[in-house]
Computed example of a mutant assay.
Amino acid sequence: MKIFEYVKGAVIPGEGAIEVTVVTKTGREFVYRQESENGRFIPPYSTLDNPYDVMTAGNYRIVGGGEEITVTEEAVIRGE
């Protein structure tokens, strides 16, 4: 069983899909991927200042492009 805490998530304007590699406290890696909805993404994982055992291994990437996006923990918690 996995329990996740609800967070507002950061808000990033854009279209398409973003993805980031997430690493669990046991070292398991998976790729979190999200499609935009209504011209925005709401990523739940920060790429900076993350105090938790589950963290990203880099920045969010626009799928099919080279752009990377940094997301702070404060933006995720506050929904910024």
Rank of each mutant, 00 (worst) to 15 (best):
E67P: 11
T21Q: 04
A10S: 15
G66Q: 05
S36A: 12
I3Y: 01
Y32C: 05
G79S: 13
R28K: 15
F4P: 05
T21H: 02
V63Y: 07
M55Y: 00
I3T: 09
A57N: 06
T47F: 13
V23F: 05
E67W: 14
V23M: 06
S46H: 08
G58S: 01
V11Q: 05
G64D: 03
P13S: 13
E15A: 07
I69Y: 07
T21G: 00
V76Y: 02
E73C: 09
E37F: 13
R61K: 09
I12W: 11
V31P: 03
I69L: 07
L48I: 14
V63A: 01
E67F: 12
I62N: 00
K8W: 12
K25D: 04
E35G: 01
V7T: 08
S36Q: 07
G14E: 03
T26K: 15
A17L: 13
I69F: 06
T26H: 05
G65K: 13
D53V: 01
M1S: 04
R28Q: 08
G58C: 02
R78S: 15
E29G: 02
I62D: 00
S46A: 09
R78W: 10
E29Q: 11
T56C: 03
R28H: 08
G58A: 01
S46T: 15
E37D: 02
S46F: 04
I77N: 03
T47R: 10
E19M: 09
K8C: 05
T21F: 04
P44D: 13
V20K: 11
P44Q: 14
T26I: 14
T56R: 00
T47Q: 11
R40N: 12
G14I: 13
A17K: 13
K25H: 07
G66A: 06
T24Q: 08
E29V: 07
E35H: 06
N50Y: 13
R78I: 10
V71N: 06
V71F: 13
E67A: 07
F41H: 15
T56S: 01
D53H: 01
G27D: 03
I3D: 01
G14M: 04
V54A: 03
V20H: 07
F4R: 05
T21D: 02
T56A: 01
Y52H: 14
G27Q: 05
R40W: 08
E80D: 15
F41G: 05
N59P: 00
F30M: 12
E5W: 00
S36N: 13
I77M: 11
V22L: 04
E29N: 10
Y45Q: 09
R61A: 02
G39A: 12
E29L: 08
E37A: 03
T47I: 10
D53F: 01
A57W: 01
I42S: 03
M55T: 14
T21V: 12
S46K: 09
V23Y: 04
F41Q: 06
E74G: 01
T47L: 12
V7H: 09
T47M: 08
E68Q: 14
